[in-house]
Amino acid sequence: MTTTHSPTGTVGGSGGTERDAARRAAERGRTRRRLYQWLFVAPALLYMLGFFGFPLVNNVVMSFQQYTPTTYFTGEAPFTGLDNWRAVLGDSLFTDAVWQTLLFTAGSLLGQFTIGLGLAVFFSRRFRLSGPIRAVLLLPWLVPMVVSAVVWRRIMDQDHGVLNSFLSVFGMDAVPWLASPSVALLSAVLVNIWIGIPFNMVILYGGLQEIPRELYEAASLDGAGPWRAFRSVTLPMLRPVITVVLVLGFMSTIKVLDLILALTGGGPADSTQTLGTLTYQLSFLQLDFGQGAVVGNVLILISAVFAVLYLRVNRADLGKGK
């Protein structure tokens, strides 16, 4: 009795072998693509590790050491544990600097964004000379911050400043803009608002140009007035741009140093001392680099928390969009 082999079984075995080979080839292709992707990203990763990662790790380590100018000659930086952290976090000046940093950042962002958005909406309606006027409004953004601070320091001078001279025309008393602890921080916020308005205006103006005009026409046909159209069309469509503006504004404002140093130097009576200026004072005036590193790490941590929250919100928005 002879045995015959089923053609179907042979074909099935051959098909299975071909599928396995195709699967292995696909896996090799995916592995190769991942390898190419990492090779393209590798230069940027190496750059970030070298120029951002190493200083960051070194700053964290320094906050646990007694790091002084002598260290640069002897190379000795004794490990002090949490002594630097206790000294900084237990100092009332640090607490004041945290609150003043938050007030300075929140006030600056609110003023810059509100005025910048208003100007962006205003210039989105084309009229004669809108281009030249927008170009003039960009000047505060183009001038170096130290130069702006020095100019405003002269303008806000209590005795000879232009601002008080202008107020005297209306019979108002001179305001100690930079000499009073109760007014100096507000003055710094106003100057920073003036500097940041052009950036907000330009970015938001670009976002407004991307909103389809048809949406406003449809809202008008539905009986929506200007304010209703702004709330129902402009703000929702502008939300991604608003997020970017606020995040970038936060990152640049919370670490402001040169503006306050040139404007008030952290005074009077430490009323404009922020985390940035406190880091500078501890590290380069008192030459206590360990405690300066502690304040710097706190500043980095605050920025990192804000960045993580931004990424989570952005990811949630993308998920809703899908």
Rank of each mutant, 00 (worst) to 15 (best):
G50P: 13
G9V: 12
R312V: 12
P198T: 02
R128C: 00
R34H: 07
L119N: 05
Q112V: 04
D83E: 10
L246T: 05
Y36G: 11
P144H: 01
V313M: 10
P69H: 06
I254E: 01
V313L: 14
V183A: 06
L167I: 04
M251D: 02
M48Y: 15
M237I: 00
M237Q: 09
V150T: 10
F64P: 14
I115F: 13
A42C: 12
Q112S: 09
Q100C: 03
P132K: 01
L139G: 05
F284R: 02
I195K: 13
R154N: 13
P176M: 00
R34S: 04
N314W: 14
G292R: 01
Q209A: 13
P226F: 07
V121S: 06
L257M: 04
I193Y: 08
L263D: 03
L138A: 08
S252R: 06
H160K: 11
G111W: 07
L103G: 05
A304H: 02
R228S: 15
I193S: 02
G319K: 12
F64C: 10
L235G: 04
L311V: 14
K322A: 13
Q286H: 14
M145P: 14
L248P: 12
S232T: 04
S303A: 15
G292V: 00
G223M: 08
V244S: 13
R231S: 05
V183D: 03
S165H: 14
V245D: 02
G16R: 15
A42R: 03
K322L: 12
G266Q: 07
S182V: 02
G16A: 15
I302K: 09
W85G: 03
G53D: 01
H5T: 15
T243K: 11
V175N: 11
V233F: 08
S6P: 11
H160N: 11
T8R: 08
G75V: 06
G223Y: 11
L235T: 06
V295L: 01
